[in-house]
């Protein structure tokens, strides 16, 4: 009977047609299939039930069972090791990234969530970030005086400071209008976010710097997870593994498509750094990791660096 089903409320803060939204829908489909209908996944997109700032507490209270928050949310939870993902130029490319997120280091980081009552299941990519503004961004001198929007993060704050900009914390939903009116001058985003929020319409220049990574973790309430029958858990794990590959491949595709579409739209001039400029960016941003070592932990940074092979 329907009431005997195990209900998993999966809440997230983005639209259903984003890579994360599609990944969640895929998980819903596969989870119900692989558990032979023992589980009913209810996906709540668009912060319908819980907003960005409250979903983590809602998970800990057991009001929802599953979330896919941005990795930047774990620092404020008291697990600052996750801030390693925000470090500039820490992953050379997707392969380097996946050697971490799909390997032991990823699991080691997840284990740090357990005494918060949280179990990490998978890492979902959003993509590598590019820098945008209303003036060319070739050298660090170009950042001087620019008000750059970031999400709350000590690492991103240090990153913008290292470039010479003025970091401004602002909610994602307010960014478009702030860019349009000039309250902030620029921001950093993976191309797909920039495109879906139409930020290319209000930014004249962008540099394809791929300087940082934006990703999510799919997490569950640990008590709920541990209480599931073993065969159900196995079914869900399989569903999660497949939807992770699905979500990641969509994310990558969408980023490529978005970049092409924005270039075609012509409202933004896209710039590729020369090798010398790229090295200058890396040099300017190198102190960020040192500055953040005490927060993140030297061992964590070392582990990520050696696993990713960079």
């Amino acid at each position: 009977a329907a009431q005997d089903k195990i209900i998993i409320k999966f809440s997230h803060v983005v639209a259903p047609d984003t890579p994360k939204g599609k990944g969640a829908a895929k998980f819903e489909e596969l989870a119900e299939k692989y558990t032979n209908g023992a589980v009913d996944v209810e996906v709540y997109p668009n912060s319908q039930l819980y907003k960005d700032k409250e979903e983590m507490e809602a998970l800990q209270l057991g009001a929802v069972q599953m979330l896919a928050p941005s990795l930047a949310k774990f620092g404020p939870l008291g697990v600052q090791a996750f801030e390693v993902f925000d470090l500039p130029y820490i992953f050379a490319d997707y392969d380097a990234l996946h050697r971490v997120t799909k390997g032991e280091v990823g699991q080691m980081l997840f284990s740090k969530l357990e005494d918060k009552g949280i179990k990490g299941l998978a890492y979902w990519d959003n993509g590598f970030k590019i820098m945008s503004a209303n003036s060319p961004l070739h050298t660090t001198d170009d950042f001087l005086g620019l008000k750059m929007r970031i999400q709350s993060s000590k690492v991103l704050e240090a990153e913008m400071n290292a470039l010479g900009a003025v970091p401004q914390v602002m909610a994602f939903s307010e960014v478009y209008q702030a860019l349009q009116t000039g309250v902030v001058d620029g921001t950093e985003n993976p191309p797909s976010n920039m495109y879906t929020q139409k930020m290319n319409e209000v930014q004249t220049h962008a540099t394809v710097s791929n300087h940082g990574y934006l990703g999510y973790a799919v997490i569950v309430n640990k008590q709920f997870w541990d209480g599931l029958p073993a065969e159900v858990r196995a079914g869900l794990e399989q569903a999660m593994a497949e939807s992770t590959d699905y979500a990641n491949s969509i994310a990558r595709e969408e980023n490529e498509k978005a970049l092409e579409a924005m270039k075609a739209a012509g409202t933004t001039e896209f710039y590729e750094l020369t090798p010398e400029e790229l090295q200058a960016w890396k040099d300017a941003l190198a102190p960020v990791a040192e500055e953040m070592t005490d927060r993140i932990g030297a061992d964590v940074i070392e582990a990520v660096k050696s696993a990713s092979g960079s």
Partner: peptide, 17 residues
């Protein structure tokens, strides 16, 4: 009381939540 055990902090000021 639950929050005090979860040791969460505010993102910018890092005050205990």
């Amino acid at each position: 009381w639950h929050m005090a055990h979860a040791s969460a902090i505010s993102p910018d000021l890092e005050l205990p939540m």
